[in-house]
C-alpha cells in the first residue's frame, strides 16, 4: 500500500464523492416526496390514480435500478426524450425510492389501530386535527426503521451510476485501476469514501429510531 499514491488520488475521489452525495440526496428527497404522496393517494383510494400508482409501485419494486437506468438513459432517447446523465441518475433513484418509501409509509399508517382515530374523534378533535396531531406522528414513528433502511439502500444503489457514465466513486475507482493498476490503493479509498457516505446515515438513523419510538407505548 502506497500512501503517496493514495494522497494523489484523493482529489479525484473527493470530487466523485460530492457528486454521489449530491445526486444521492436529491434522489432521496424526491423519493420521500413521491413516496409520501403515493402512500396518501393509496390510503385515500382516489379512484384512477390509486390503480396507476399501485402499478408503478409494483413495477419499480420488482426491477433492479440498473435495468431502470438503462431503460431511462438508453431506451427513452429513441422516443425523443433525451435526458442528461446526472438528471437520469437522480430520476431513477427517485422513482425506485418513491416505490419503496410509499410501501413503508403505507404500512406505517396501516399499523395504527382504529381505536386511536376513534379516541381522538371522541375527544372532539376535528378530522384535520386527528390527522396532524395523532395519525401523522404515529405513522411516521412506526415507519422510521423502514425509512432509514430505505435511505441506506438508496445510497448504496448509487453505486450503479457508473453504468450511465456518471463519474461517481465506482467510476473513478474503475478508471484509476484501469489506468495505473494500483488496485489495492484504489479499492481502499473506495471503501473509505463509501464509509464516509454511509456510516453517518447508519449511526444517525439508529439514534433517531430510538428517539421517536413513542408510538409503541400503550399499544
Amino acid at each position: 500500500m502506497d500512501l503517496e499514491v493514495m494522497k494523489e488520488y484523493m482529489p479525484l475521489y473527493r470530487e466523485a464523492f460530492f457528486l454521489t452525495m449530491k445526486i444521492g440526496w436529491i434522489g432521496i428527497l424526491g423519493a420521500v416526496i413521491i413516496g409520501f404522496a403515493a402512500a396518501v393517494v393509496r390510503l385515500l383510494k382516489i379512484p384512477v390514480l390509486h390503480r396507476i400508482l399501485g402499478a408503478y409501485i409494483e413495477l419499480f419494486r420488482n426491477t433492479p435500478l440498473l435495468v431502470q437506468l438503462f431503460f431511462l438513459y438508453f431506451g427513452l432517447p429513441k422516443l425523443g426524450l433525451s435526458i442528461s446523465a446526472p438528471f437520469c441518475g437522480a430520476l431513477g433513484l427517485m422513482l425506485l425510492g418513491g416505490a419503496y418509501m410509499a410501501e413503508t409509509f403505507r404500512s406505517g399508517f396501516e399499523a395504527i389501530p382504529v381505536l386511536q382515530t376513534e379516541t381522538a374523534r371522541a375527544l372532539g378533535m376535528s378530522k384535520f386535527q386527528t390527522t396532524v396531531h395523532v395519525l401523522l406522528p404515529e405513522a411516521l414513528s412506526v415507519s422510521m426503521p423502514g425509512f432509514t433502511a430505505n435511505m441506506i439502500f438508496l445510497l448504496k444503489e448509487t453505486s450503479v451510476f457508473s453504468a450511465i457514465s456518471l463519474m461517481d466513486l465506482m467510476f473513478t475507482a474503475k478508471d484509476l485501476i484501469g489506468l495505473y493498476f494500483r488496485t489495492v490503493e484504489c479499492l481502499t479509498l473506495l471503501v473509505v469514501f463509501y464509509l464516509f457516505l454511509l456510516l453517518p446515515v447508519s449511526i444517525l438513523g439508529s439514534i433517531v429510531e430510538r428517539r421517536v419510538r413513542y408510538a409503541e407505548f400503550g399499544a
Binding site: 448504496k156 444503489e157 453505486s159 450503479v160 471503501v191 463509501y194 464509509l195 454511509l198 456510516l199 447508519s202
Partner: peptide, 8 residues
C-alpha cells in the same frame, strides 16, 4: 455488509 454497496 449492511453499509458496503454490493458493487464495492
Amino acid at each position: 455488509v449492511r453499509i458496503m454497496p454490493q458493487m464495492v
